[in-house]
Write a protein that binds this DNA or RNA. Structure first.
Lengths: 198, 198
DNA sequence: GTTACAAGTCAGCGCACGTTTACTACTGTT
DNA sequence: AACAGTAGTAAACGTGCGCTGACTTGTAAC
């Protein structure tokens, strides 16, 4: 209850504000296209604060990635085999705090030009894929899980920057059936899975 | 047979050279990250020639998109229902002129910041999806076709800029089975397709 | 009320980018 | 051989970017 009244100057709050608007910009426009002046204006503060709180534009981007990674890992850990499609649908088109949820996914495929960041990204994608692959014990499972993940990222892309209809405005419910079929087709009961390569 | 010997100065050839190296750069790095000086150096010519032959960087990008669009449309027109997965696998990981084939796909999701170009992009994606959707007459078919397309684009992304293993180095043969299952699951025999939403 | 420090602002630096202008060199024609 | 026209070059211009250092203002402690 202490100090809960609004302060006109609050470092923690502005830092958080910067994180959120930056995350939104980076996810929608990509790293290179987003300028620090845009971000500062969105947050309603001066540009210099970005350098102060996050060292640099790249530092801010990395901070955005960190929060996104944490979210995604949490999602992945709590997902059970039967859940996969529903969790993906929720993340892509979940209603409650949309479109914040999808932003995390989009950050995964926005490159900053920094090799260390790309390495982090690969790490997260790989971890999520392997978690997904645990659903089956198949040696090909990781590859198939990565295809599921790739599909999810692709859908997120088409909905955000490309805005291809009708996918762009499909609801969570409308996405659930196709995603279920996709996951089922790729990781569920064997169809072509067990047959030898032609 | 006329004038087939190599000329040291050949406008048509340099123009073509610029188109090819630009397409590669744009596909790999995106529009904003690629500089005209990079492109000119790759082509081994002076920067000013980009302005001369394509008016501007954006003009060059648009020219790249035009060639990619033509290729993709041609692919789409010649695809039969049973072919879909094979054509996609070939485009993603086709051996003969790889990785040129995949570049066309990647250009579809690289944004230039120009709204007219984005409109073109949406148009092509939409056309390809509708063509894909003709496989079935289902009203939901376009949505499902777009999911197939999104998956394809996502895979291309993971192979190029993200380089997530094992997807990044999977061969055409290795991709064929998962893609077949994906297409089958989404557009083939009804599984959850006909059952009402939960 | 005064003081000290943190929060926030302002103006500008340096650099890399896309583009342009003035120039040089090659090539086919007569 | 001289010319004309085009292919290609060199250098610089203007702009917008990320970032910085000196400054101002709010806030909490005494």
């Amino acid at each position: 209850m202490a100090a809960e009244r609004e302060r006109r100057r609050d470092a923690g709050r502005t830092r958080q504000q910067l994180l959120e608007v930056a995350r939104c910009r980076f996810a929608r426009q990509g790293y290179a296209t987003t300028t620090v002046r845009d971000i500062a204006e969105d947050a309603g503060v001066n540009v210099a604060l970005i350098s102060r709180y996050f060292t640099s534009k790249e530092g801010l981007f990395k901070a955005c990635l960190d929060t996104a990674f944490a979210e995604i890992r949490r999602d992945a850990e709590q997902t059970t085999p039967n859940d996969v499609a529903a969790v993906l649908a929720r993340r892509i088109a979940g209603a409650e705090d949309s479109p914040r949820r999808m932003e995390g996914l989009l950050l995964l495929l926005r490159t900053s030009g920094d090799e260390r960041i790309d390495e982090m990204r690969r790490g997260v994608l790989r971890a999520v894929s392997e978690r997904l692959a645990q659903v089956t014990g198949d040696p090909e499972a990781v590859l198939r899980a990565e295809v599921v993940l790739a599909a999810t990222l692709g859908i997120a892309m088409m909905r955000s920057s490309l805005q291809v209809q009708p996918l762009a405005t499909a609801t969570e419910q409308e996405l659930l059936a196709p995603l279920t079929d996709l996951v089922e087709g790729l990781m569920g009961q064997p169809m072509t899975r067990r047959r030898p390569a032609r």
